[in-house]
Simulated scan of single mutants.
Amino acid sequence: MPQAGLNIGSDYRFDVLTATGLLTLPTLLRFNKKKITNKLTVKPLNTLPIHLSFQEGGWEGTFEVSRADSTLDDYFAALEAAYYAGVNQPSGFIQETIQEIGGNISTYQLQGVVLYFDDAGDVEAEKNVIQKVSFLASTRIKLS
Rank of each mutant, 00 (worst) to 15 (best):
L40T: 09
V42C: 04
K43R: 12
P44G: 02
P44H: 05
P44R: 07
N46K: 12
T47R: 10
T47C: 05
T47I: 00
L48N: 13
L48A: 15
L48Q: 14
I50G: 01
I50S: 03
H51D: 14
L52G: 02
L52K: 06
L52E: 06
S53Q: 09
S53W: 01
F54E: 07
F54R: 05
Q55T: 08
E56P: 03
E56Q: 12
G57I: 11
G58S: 03
G58A: 10
W59L: 07
W59R: 04
E60D: 10
E60T: 11
G61D: 11
T62I: 06
E64D: 13
V65I: 13
V65M: 14
S66D: 12
S66A: 15
S66Y: 05
S66Q: 15
A68T: 00
S70L: 10
T71R: 11
T71K: 07
L72G: 02
D73P: 06
D74R: 09
D74K: 09
F76H: 01
A77Y: 02
A78G: 10
A78M: 06
A78N: 13
L79C: 06
L79V: 10
E80R: 12
A81L: 14
A81N: 13
A82P: 05
A82S: 12
A82M: 07
Y83L: 07
Y83M: 08
Y84G: 02
Y84R: 08
A85L: 07
V87N: 10
V87F: 02
V87M: 09
N88A: 15
P90S: 00
P90E: 03
P90M: 07
P90G: 01
S91G: 05
G92S: 07
G92A: 06
F93R: 15
F93L: 13
F93I: 08
F93V: 06
F93Q: 14
I94E: 03
Q95E: 14
Q95C: 04
Q95K: 14
Q95A: 04
E96N: 05
E96C: 09
T97N: 09
T97F: 07
I98C: 08
Q99G: 08
Q99N: 11
E100H: 08
I101H: 00
I101Y: 02
G102Y: 00
